[in-house]
Amino acid sequence: MTIIAIDGLTKRYGDVVANDDITFNVEAGEIFGYLGPNGAGKTTTIRQLLGLIKPTEGTAELLGADIRDRKALTAAKANLGYLPDHLGFEDRLTGNQALDYFARMRGDERREELLELFHPPLDRPIETYSAGNRRMLGIIQAFMHDPDLVIMDEPTSGLDPLKQDRLHLFLEEEVADGKTIFFSSHILSEVQRVCDRVGIIRNGAIVEIEDIESLLSRSGKDVWVHFKDDVSPETFLTDEMIDVEEADSAIRFTYTGETNRLIEHLGQFDLVDIDVGDPQLDDIFKHYYGDNLVNPQT
């Protein structure tokens, strides 16, 4: 069953095309990743789905409701959870008051259960919350009425790694119970970890809809190594290393190969320090999908 059907969704602001003819479906019971660099147009798509902004062209169906049919869309929202990237809570309310407020509009039968997993300080005003606490409160309000579909925009931003893991695990359990998750993110590794299928958006347009298997082969890590002695780049560099920068006895590169092979390779050298992190998604996309694959301006 199709939970979200997006058909030619286009949003223009003057000459700027924020979404260009976006088309894809999200099926029931999957975690669909919506992956793209910051500013690619992910939030624009989501805000159109929620009826917050109107498409210039095209349309979409959310839980069977055409987003242009305001009445149907409003009714469908009873079965929707939404975790925005920017959580606009009423800051002087306490966490409990904010949850009570939303509960009166859509129920909160799973609130206690969620509070065992995610526990922001509910008796304190939200204005005193850390980014992580704010995000946890957002997760609780998105799931507390047990909706069929949850749309999450950068859901792990602000969460510490432990809480991120907890969320990922929680999402897997939820999907096993039949929920559908729309997971928008600019972090390749987390999408690879939790999603079943992925829509890749760049400069406002869909580049590819991929199964997770093919996306897994398109990985990348931002690596920085500092050698004890000078090492000639020729002996160190491999084909999997792109965007290489060298300085003295250090090298920074984006690694596009398999992780174990990288570890084996590094083991042959005498290292002083190493740093491995998530790369800029745009660099990885350039590598895999080419530079000028999409030009929404034309």
């Binding site: 929620l50 929202k77 009873a78 925005p84 920017h86 606009g88 509009m105």
Partner: peptide, 18 residues
């Protein structure tokens, strides 16, 4: 005030009309 602070995004994700 609620447009800028994005409070309406959260409020309108409820089954409530504008």
């Amino acid at each position: 005030g609620d447009i800028r602070s994005r409070q309406l995004d959260l409020l309108l994700s409820n089954p409530v009309s504008r």
